[in-house]
């Protein structure tokens, strides 16, 4: 099974638009997954029909039985996160759910309760089954939710005998991105030719090297800054990324977002044409087995 993950470092470079376009162009059967759990936008382009949803629990929160509490303050002394105030109220934002307070409470007045932090959805789309999720705003444990979405996508692929999983990732290089990298065969990085785009691509490439995952590069909106695009290309070469192609700035991309459809279905414009070509390269270089 091959897992192909779309990442960008910087947000808003076009990961989701490109992932949806390739999902629509791929004729090989695949599972699609959206692991950008705090801004899950891929479903907005794939006309999903929800099949099932389930709550997701991760992490713990301390719950105190005020009847048992003698106010001794041991919990406050032991907490390293400053989450327990002078009046012994527990601040949910500072609490990491480590349970040290509960462990040391001499009265056993604190129990750790599992927390529901989000929901996982299974949908069907015209392009294949889609596993996606929503992290409740402000929750921790986005990494665990990412791992669970991926686990379900893999199970589904095994059950249905599908060889590919196409995954839309999150921006950044921290917890959810690191969680999304485990078991990935290749990453497709989407960068834009800006100073920020260049800077963020380098950090993401370093992360891929750290985890020894091969990376490919797509430059989006390449014509906005041709010089910066060639700098991106040079940098990609130095960072060991293979180049898949460029996509020009095209106002029709907005139309595809507005209509909620993958770009190749609603546009024959320059961006759509570029994506067709890129899809060919993806087939040749990543999927294997020649051109589609």
């Amino acid at each position: 099974m091959k897992e192909i993950l779309f990442l960008s470092g910087k947000g808003g470079t076009g990961k989701t638009t490109i992932c949806a376009a390739l999902a629509s162009l791929w004729e090989k059967p695949k599972v699609i997954a959206d692991v950008d759990v705090d801004a899950s936008n891929l479903p907005l382009l794939l006309s999903p029909r929800l099949l099932s949803q389930s709550p997701f629990q991760a992490g713990w929160e301390p719950v105190r039985d005020e009847g048992k509490c003698t106010g001794c303050g041991t919990c406050r002394e032991k907490c390293r996160f400053g989450a327990i105030g002078e009046d012994l109220t527990i601040d949910p934002f500072d609490c990491e759910g480590c349970g040290v307070c509960a462990w040391f409470c001499p009265e056993e007045a604190i129990v750790m309760k599992e927390k529901e932090v989000g929901k996982i959805f299974l949908s069907e789309t015209p392009y294949g089954p889609l596993v996606h999720a929503e992290l409740y705003p402000g929750e921790e444990n986005s990494g665990k939710l990412v791992v669970e979405v991926k686990r379900r996508a893999r199970l589904l692929a095994e059950e249905q005998g599908l060889d590919f999983i196409l995954i839309d990732g999150s921006p950044g290089i921290g917890c959810p991105v690191i969680a999304s990298l485990s078991g990935v065969s290749v990453c497709i990085l989407v960068a834009e030719p800006t100073l920020s785009g260049l800077h963020d691509l380098k950090r993401l490439a370093a992360l891929l090297r750290h985890f020894k995952i091969p990376g490919y590069l797509i430059i989006n909106k390449a014509d906005l800054a041709p010089e910066m695009s060639s700098e991106l290309l040079n940098s990609a070469e130095r960072e060991g990324l293979s180049f898949l192609g460029s996509i020009p700035y095209d106002p029709e991309v907005f139309e595809c977002l507005r209509l909620g459809q993958p770009l190749p279905l609603v546009s024959k414009g320059p961006a759509s044409k570029a994506l067709l070509e890129i899809n060919g390269h993806v087939y040749k270089n990543i999927v294997g087995g020649g051109e589609q």
């Binding site: 801004a39 986005s142 950044g172």
Partner: peptide, 24 residues
């Protein structure tokens, strides 16, 4: 970006939050 704990850590304690968005 996002809405997870890192964002709340950054916003917490601010007097006001400007949310930047685009009409899409």
């Amino acid at each position: 970006p996002g809405t997870s704990c890192a964002v709340l850590t950054a916003v917490r304690g601010a007097d006001f939050c400007l949310l930047v968005t685009e009409p899409t």
